[in-house]
Simulated assay, not measured.
Amino acid sequence: MDDPKYSKFNVSTTVYKTVNGQDIDLGVMIPKDAHSGARPVLIHFHGGFLVTGHAMYPEWFANWAIDYSLLHSAIVVSPNYRLFPESSGLEILSDIRDFWTWIQDDLPAYLKSVGSEVTPDYSKVLAYGESAGGYLAIMSGLTKPDLVKAVIAAYPMTYIDADWYRVASSTKAPMGAPQVPVAVFEEHVKGTPEGKIFTGAFPPERMPLVLSILQSGAFSGLGDDESLFPDRVLEKLSADRKVPFLFAFHGTEDSAVPCEHTQKFVGKWEEKFGQGSVVGKWEKGDHGVDAVTTLEEPWLQEGLTDVTKAWIG
């Protein structure tokens, strides 16, 4: 939490949920120059294929997103959540639901408890995430449309029922990573005590596990419930349903999460909710295409202009 990237925030952590006697925490970052009173809220969901990553891992919180939150003096809240394969997809989503309950019921009192004079403006809530976090941001937008005004999904996992995630293949080499035997995944599962959960890991921890799961198609273990899949949730919604504005972007050469999935999902969103409900940007690059992107980047500016209108007004 003392990373230079967070130097302009007052940072603290707290527990929002306990499972099997094991705490699940979140981080709260309040801009040091934020004036007292109601402030916009930016929720950041970390990536990591739902297998690794941590709410406060600075390498996966893009510089432009930090600058964007500071630009609007937004309260930033980033939750950890149960990770796969120790937990199922439904268990992960239940953590996200409980997190949103904490945001609505407990955030004001928590801010006061840490001595802050800012309060959350619930009319200005933005959900943002990258990769697996993009998936969770989209799911939040679809299930909490009365609260979430805009969603930023950076190279998100969307069609997690696709062959990419559920069929074994030796051609999957994210960012040039080596092939990792399925035994790494199998032995990990065998060695995990019943009831043990994992809720955060700073990469490279669990990265071999990520590769073993992806390359062996083991994401089928997330489950098959309809509520796990953004496209199926979207399909069931009425076209006149209130939804947040969606800004999605993806690197066209992404070797970890297929760009065409995001392009397809953006098309489905626009088809359902109409022009002006979504903006998609496709930029040359691999996973993490925004790694060195700044707020001055034209394609990012274009998307964020519409996000800001929906979020801030």
Rank of each mutant, 00 (worst) to 15 (best):
F9N: 13
V11G: 13
G27E: 03
V41Y: 03
H46P: 00
F49A: 06
L50Q: 00
T52R: 05
A55M: 02
E59K: 12
F61D: 02
I66F: 02
V76Q: 10
S78E: 13
S87I: 05
S94R: 04
I96D: 09
D98K: 01
L111E: 01
V114I: 15
Y122L: 04
V125E: 02
G129E: 10
G129A: 12
E130L: 03
Y135K: 13
A137N: 04
I138G: 11
T143N: 08
L147H: 01
Y155F: 00
I160Y: 09
A162K: 08
T171M: 12
K172L: 15
V182D: 05
E186V: 11
V189S: 13
E205Y: 14
E205P: 09
P208E: 11
S212Y: 13
L214W: 13
L214A: 15
A218P: 02
F219N: 10
G221A: 08
L234C: 13
L234R: 07
L237H: 01
V243L: 14
F247W: 01
A248G: 14
T252C: 06
P258V: 04
C259D: 08
Q263W: 06
Q263Y: 09
F265W: 14
K268I: 06
K268R: 10
W269C: 15
K272W: 15
V278M: 05
E283C: 04
G288W: 07
D290G: 05
L300H: 12
Q301F: 04
G303A: 15
D306K: 04
K309Y: 02
